[in-house]
Amino acid sequence: MLINKHEDPIGSALLDFYQTSEDTNIQVEMDIAEKDTLAPSYFFRSFDECPQLERVALQQASGKVLDVGAGAGSHSLYLQQNGMDVTAIDVSPHSVSVMQKRGLSKVKLADFFEFNEGAFDTLLFLMNGIGLVKTLDGFDAFFKKAKTLLAPNGQILLDSSDLIYMYEEDDGSYLIDLNDKYHGEVEFNLSYKKIKGAPFRWLYVSEELLIDAAQQSGFECEIIQHGPHYDYLAKLTVQASSPI
């Protein structure tokens, strides 16, 4: 589902930053964590300023690339500047406008689940872009959709992290209510100045559960690299025996 342009806090913040260098923070509320902020400037990072997992992902991206949830388009710009064929999509109208202004040649205002154009060699979901599945149950629809967008031998590259650290006790043990929802399912409420976004759910998934979900849908999942804080980069490909 696309975001209404009047309820687009991230996009509005990115547009302000792009046009005026105003770096007013996006306010982030979560059901499982303390309030926090995100600086719009962070979305305009260069390759060298990207966390290591993102840099590895950009180096692994190959062929025709679809950057899903591209935001300010920094990853796509890097790929385009390196001569790659990259299409950036986002559900945020103002983010799409920023990407167009930054000179990305292929930008679409589109929801991944409704996007039908072309077959891609790489689907890129960085900055926990896989969160768009919302819950663990969302993986089934995600992988079905991904298969329709992937070229033969194509790959999905995504980073995520295991939020188990949110539940660590002082003695190093973890306290989790197993009857509750999965600990990586987070409800977000974002705002920027007076602009409030609609609340949305976003998934952070552990390596083990991602691998399980991938296998159930006929994908191989390889953890390419671990990050410094429960985070990782994964590469997913369609299993050879799986019908596309």
């Binding site: 982030v28 979560m30 499982i32 964590a33 303390e34 926090d36 995100l38 962070y42 300023e49 990207c50 966390p51 290591q52 997992l53 993102e54 900055m127 980073d159 992290s161 939020l163 650290y165 949110m166 987070v186 990050g227 410094p228 804080h229 985070d231």
Partner: peptide, 14 residues
């Protein structure tokens, strides 16, 4: 409540 790391770390732990 604790803080959730909204963005990945920029530096490796080493």
């Amino acid at each position: 409540m604790k803080k959730l790391l909204l963005v990945l770390m920029l530096m490796p732990t080493v």
